[in-house]
Amino acid sequence: MNPLEIELGPMESFPQFPAEVILEDIPYWLVRTTEGEYRLLLAICPHAGGEIRPLNDVLFCPLHFWTFNSENGVCLNDPDEKLMQRKVELRENLLYAVGHNH
């Protein structure tokens, strides 16, 4: 296994998306895109460090009411801002976080 890979678990462990995941003591939301890809979006707002939570079909920061696209993490209030993310791969029914945040 690649040292930059962390097993998240089998697909059955995530019956709903976004799914809350703690990885190396960092909170993320595991999301599935309409294209069927998976990614981890950092659950900490880049603006003021608020805790990102799902709200309807977006991710929401209650500190200053910023909202983020729940598939790609782009901020809907300021498109120059976005949530850090980490790539996720599905192999043999197991999800793996791969690489670093970007």
Rank of each mutant, 00 (worst) to 15 (best):
E20L: 12
I22T: 15
R91P: 01
P3S: 11
M11C: 05
F65R: 15
L23I: 06
P46S: 12
N2V: 07
P62F: 02
N101T: 09
M11F: 14
E89I: 15
N2W: 07
G99H: 12
L42P: 00
G50A: 10
V74D: 05
G49T: 12
E5K: 07
D57F: 06
L41D: 00
H47V: 05
S70L: 04
R32W: 02
L95E: 02
L94K: 15
L55T: 00
E37M: 10
G36K: 08
S13P: 01
L30F: 08
F17D: 01
F60E: 00
R53C: 07
L63H: 09
H102I: 11
Y28N: 02
E35M: 09
E71H: 13
G49M: 10
L59A: 08
D25L: 04
R32N: 09
L83S: 01
D25I: 00
C75Q: 07
H47N: 08
E5N: 14
V74R: 15
F14N: 05
E92L: 09
L41I: 05
E81D: 13
G99M: 12
E12K: 12
M84K: 15
H47A: 03
M84R: 14
T34V: 12
G49D: 09
E37A: 13
Y38K: 05
V98G: 03
G73N: 03
R32G: 02
L30E: 00
M1R: 08
I52Q: 04
L40Q: 03
C75E: 05
T34F: 09
C45Y: 03
L30R: 03
P54Q: 09
R91M: 08
P54W: 12
L42G: 01
F17Q: 03
K82F: 13
N56M: 08
W29Y: 12
G49A: 11
P54T: 11
Y28Q: 05
H47P: 09
G50H: 06
G73I: 06
M84S: 13
L4A: 09
I52R: 03
P54D: 03
R53L: 14
I26G: 00
E89P: 00
N77I: 01
V88P: 04
F60M: 01
A97H: 10
I44L: 15
L30N: 01
Y28K: 07
Y38E: 01
P10H: 14
F68P: 01
E12W: 04
T33F: 10
N77K: 11
L59H: 02
L76V: 02
L40N: 01
L94S: 14
L30G: 02
N2L: 11
C45K: 07
N2H: 14
E24H: 15
L63P: 00
D80R: 15
G50N: 07
F14C: 05
G36C: 07
Q85G: 11
L63G: 00
V58D: 00
E37T: 14
I26R: 11
L41R: 06
N77S: 11
E12G: 06
A97E: 08
Y28G: 03
S13I: 07
A97G: 12
P54K: 12
L41K: 04
R32C: 11
E24L: 12
